[in-house]
Design a protein around this nucleic acid. Sequence first.
RNA 1: GCCCGGGUGGUGGAACUGGUAGACACGCAGGACUUAAAAUCCUGUGGCUAUUGCAGCCGUGCGGGUUCGAUCCCCGCCCCGGGUACCA
Length: 868
Amino acid sequence: MEYNFSGIEKKWQKRWAESKIFSAKNNSSGLPKYYVLDMFPYPSGSGLHVGHPLGYIASDIFARYKRHEGFNVLHPMGYDAFGLPAEQYAIETGQHPAITTEKNIKRYREQLDKIGFSFDWDRQVKTSDPAFYRWTQWIFIQLFHSWYNKELDKAEPIQTLIEAFERGGSNAAKAATTAEYAFSAEEWQSFDAGKKREVLLDYRLAYRAATVVNWCPGLGTVLANDEVVNGVSERGGFPVVQKKMLQWSLRITAYAERLLEGLERIEWTDSLKEIQRNWIGKSQGAEVAFQVEGSEHAVEVFTTRPDTIFGATFMVLAPEHPLVELITTEDQKEEVEAYQTLTKARSERERMAEAKSVTGAFTGAFAVNPVTNTRIPIWIGDYVLAGYGTGAIMAVPAGDQRDWDFANHFKLEIIPVIEGQDISEGADSRKTGKMINSGFLNGHTVEEALSLVIEKIESLEIGKRKINYKLRDAVFSRQRYWGEPFPVYYRDDIPFTIDEDKLPLMLPEVDEYKPTEDGDPPLGRATQWNWDREAGKIVENGSGAPIELSTMPGWAGSSWYFLRYMMEDQKEIRDKELVSKEAVEYWKEVDLYIGGAEHATGHLLYFRFWTKFLYDLGFIPVDEPAKKLINQGMIQAEDGQKMSKRYGNVVNPDDVIERYGADSLRLHEMFLGPIEMHKPWNTKGIEGVSKFLRKLWRLFHDQQGNSLLSDEKPSKEELKSLHKCIQKVTDDMHRHSFNTSVSHFMIAVNELTDLKCHKREILESLTILVSCHAPHISEELWERLGHEESISAAPWPAFNEEYLKDDSIRYPVSFNGKTRFQIELDAALSKTEVEEKVLAAEEAQKYLEGKQPRKVIVVPGRIVNIVV
RNA sequence: GCCCGGGUGGUGGAACUGGUAGACACGCAGGACUUAAAAUCCUGUGGCUAUUGCAGCCGUGCGGGUUCGAUCCCCGCCCCGGGUACCA
């Protein structure tokens, strides 16, 4: 009887589902826990292609391995169910996104089930489920009622800030803010309730402020920075423009330093950490004030190279800088305003495209370099960004290429400040050498100059040491329908949150999924809101309702979902808290997280941010969500193109399973190459793994399907094959090298086939090794070996060094009666051959006299290597 | 431009980070079984030379270097992938 994968796979999938064998228990006393998580999918209408399950297969292999190792494994799955495609489809067809989403989820589930994953489906989450998103809304409420205490470096309830203000005014707390305030305790007390709320809004971790945002007219919504790629929207590719709008934002910038620091403590790939570091963009330097000549104003600048301040020959302000209109002289006014109009008219894309051209205008004003006391002109130019640093720079054309270009174009002075600096063709940004043309810094190295000049600046009280970050606060509102409604209403335009016990604030029904005629988001069309049935007085219908009409972005639910899986499926408890203390104390954090690297600056950053926030408030015991992260690569089509419905090159896993079986699919996806790598799908290669499974099958059965199993004692050779495999595969598992483990199975099966080995003892262990990759066939063989319990509970086989001993012999050789070293020889060599090798080794030793080699490896024929 | 990765047979990829490069698989060629096909099995397969000789030489993007020994370490180039982009 040949290996009938289709019958076997159906049989075991059914049994696993019925027995709920993979459901994890929270009260498993004594067992160590292990949490393996996949980035949950957005259920799109096109279903899964063979690229999607790659990461799921890897995580499933590891989850199964950990079970064999005796861990209580949590391996859940769910759906990131809010999102644009379902809403776009709704706009076109009028079908409710919830219906589209449900349909897609059903299809996803069918496809996933066929692959034989060991997910604990009882814990499934759906971000669009009110039972789930009530807690997303709840976290938002906590963010709203919190501020960031820079002194203690953590978030705190807003009440402690209010107490500080009452005690000592704005100076009593060092807080992360949107705007700087200066008020005394008395002044605070004198503010009315509205004013107080207004001030507090600038301190909250979830705040509403008029900020310059990425507005995408094509999608009719704002987008976060990571959702904009090359000036167009990541989804849909619509143009994005900069617009000042009143929007909800999350104060992620308060966590910039901790988001950097945390990277040191987690095992994520270096490249991913690097991406996050760059995105956070920390730079150290100084902030210095330059007095404007004949004016009470001063221009504040941020610089990373205060040591080059003697080379600062002019200043440049961003065209939007508020000082521009205050300092521009009469005769330059026209030119400056013309330039401002010009830059305003240019879109983000145009600005990017024209990045290389130099433009600017002179304000007519001069500033005084506070260290050199020289008079330097103040310009405006759009290469200086209003949003970074102070929106103004001191230009050092000798050391900065953009400043050099500007100086060169407008014929401004360029002074070298470091010995040997070559400024003839461009700037020279070297950071080594001795200072020149730099007054009291002359003769000092750059390094010395840096600390000397900062000391000087601080003693003159014209500036201070300063750290800047590129990271921006995360815009949190979307003018869309299919997302979590904000638990927020307004009184006199001041936001209030809905009582926690009124959650969830259900997403209301609307007649259409488009914005209202007044330009309000789709929720403006809602005539029924459920949240306030009893009170009922704040709810109003239609546009103009004093309730927040935006919804949350797609990344809201995914920023905390890993916690929700920790709860066992007990409805009452689930509705009582986000995650129970006991559950989170037991599971703590994700041990292994698998997903794409494309989420580096989006999900993976917000995920860490929310975790740190919940940690600060004492809701969870860890401040990093995932200890280890593996980024799976993409599987492309055979021509190396991206697999997509649009190109018609999609390979559907269902078809592969139909033809070769799920175990073959799983093995093949792993065998294609290292998990992190992008690789093209190769249909022919699957024959190899499929052949391997048939060979494995034939170690157990003859052609008629009769069992070949024997209870004979295994031979030395058979044991060696097995234990070599155990050793290699165990090592592969630890290294997450799931492709090489497939090779190691194949080698073992080939060797055992050659040896005609049908011995129970050998095959039993081998089956366990294979079971992580190919669970269905392994369960079937396991049953045929006479076991009643599932193979997933079988302990991982241990290898015995004894069986692995090489046939080579180690030969000690002494030289001059002193130095001892070993040569390794093949045992098959004849006595005279061995003597020859020893002689050769001794000669090698002589040759290397004085270098003290420890080991000489000799192979038949010649000396190959000498280890020194 | 800057910052990370990475270049190994016809192909996907191995090589325990300094110790016999090319495991394993695909593909290809030849053979066995078969009326034939499928399936299965065997042999060969980096290049060049020699295959009546066991062998020899060259080979991990290119050019140098360190080392007894380099795919691995160092220096200088070239190419590919990813991130980022007037971030002062």
